[in-house]
Nucleic acid binder design. Structure first.
Lengths: 222, 222
DNA sequence: ATTACTAGCGCACGAGTAA
DNA sequence: TTTACTCGTGCGCTAGTAA
């Protein structure tokens, strides 16, 4: 029991725009609380400028103040911010160079065109390679691999076969990137390859050995 | 302080999809509570199946359970339901006939075409006339009149001048209608005129003298 | 460093009841 | 009928401290 429960009850009854005739026992009944308890809460909420009250014939006329409305809005907002993190996984690692085959792949037009199409940016012809130094982080990567992700199909060029890629929207130190995982070659399990738009490469001033944070979005649609 | 605050905190840190390393004192600091208090709450929330916990090296690894997520969703939903009532005014009255000039207006094509255009239905060539029997209800009507509403312009036909109408989306016993207030003739302050789509006239089996509930939407856009 | 127990205090609760 | 007071109980809080 708290003032939020009462604000929600009053709001659902339409106490925003006009005074609502209510009694403490009716609210109590609806919320499973005693009449006395509601009486005390309304008194308190009046002091806190969450509601106005005027005596009516039977019971009070109660209305939610702008402050009361703001309180509800703020809570809703906070919950939304929290729920927005659903389906996102954070990973920490360390920037390394010269590992992984992503940088080779990204020079191939067939791959980079697909990135452009599905992620909306032209990838820099190299990748950020992130080394996962902790077993915990590798377990996170496993969780990502178990997700569906965004598939970029493979192709053949002459004799050579280029495998499919499983990709994810992600942010690297806050900047939008794409996580690229070749579907076949599962060697180097402790490396994550991230392609960035060209401009980001300049903006993020990170060097080899730097610790970086990545947030991977498991959802397919942005 | 309650479990919602902690769920929001954990959620914002991304504890939905993967275990989050936290300590009771860190949460306490963030929420302005003592370490001991957070310890007790986490214990309780674990019992209530809102979170899982596993001992880590320093502190716990905490994750929000599906049930915990559902709890947040439900609260968000309830708040949204409450906030959806904002800008809506409830009025009670009694159905009467033969009063008001709305029914005359609605037979005029220039008016009814506008209703069709702005409310999306062809009005029945008569109005529901609602008599406000209580001073409280009349005060509600004043609040409505003070709002902007949806204007339907006047026109002249030969010598006669037909005034503008101020209209509002509303529901009459749950059915979508339009409240129509002539801008000039402010006689009969205790009558509200409501036009309904033709089919509603049959569906709502209300007769003269019946008490009815109206919910008026002060917003212009549906 | 952690978590979480115990003790002590105060706020929140329902029951009874006055106005 | 109302609201809201007082009273007694118990839950939630912080501080101290054990593990």
């Amino acid at each position: 029991m708290n003032e939020i429960d009462i604000l929600i009850y009053l709001g659902k009854q339409g106490a925003f725009s006009s005074p609502l005739p209510v009694t403490t026992s009716r609210i109590g009944k609806a919320l499973g609380e005693s009449q006395q308890n509601i009486s005390r809460w309304l008194l308190k909420m009046e002091k806190e400028d969450l509601i106005y009250r005027n005596m009516g014939i039977k019971g009070y006329l109660v209305q939610i103040t702008p402050n009361g409305e703001k309180t509800l809005q703020k809570l809703k907002n906070d919950i939304e911010l929290a729920l927005a993190k659903k389906g996102k996984i954070k990973i920490r690692g360390e920037l390394v160079t010269g590992m992984g085959d992503g940088q080779y792949y990204m020079r191939l037009k067939k791959y980079s065109d697909q990135i452009k199409k599905k992620f909306g940016f032209k990838p820099y012809a190299g990748t950020f390679n992130i080394k996962l130094t902790d077993m915990k982080e590798i377990r996170q990567k496993e969780k990502i691999i178990a997700s569906k992700g965004i598939e970029i199909p493979g192709f053949r060029e002459g004799n050579r076969v280029f495998g499919a890629l499983k990709c994810f929207h992600c942010t690297l130190e806050g900047g939008k990137c794409a996580l690229v995982i070749p579907e076949r070659s599962h060697h180097s399990f402790d490396i994550m390859e991230i392609v960035a738009p060209e401009f980001l490469r300049d903006k993020l001033k990170i060097k080899d050995g730097n610790a970086v944070k990545i947030e991977v979005d498991l959802n397919e649609n942005l």
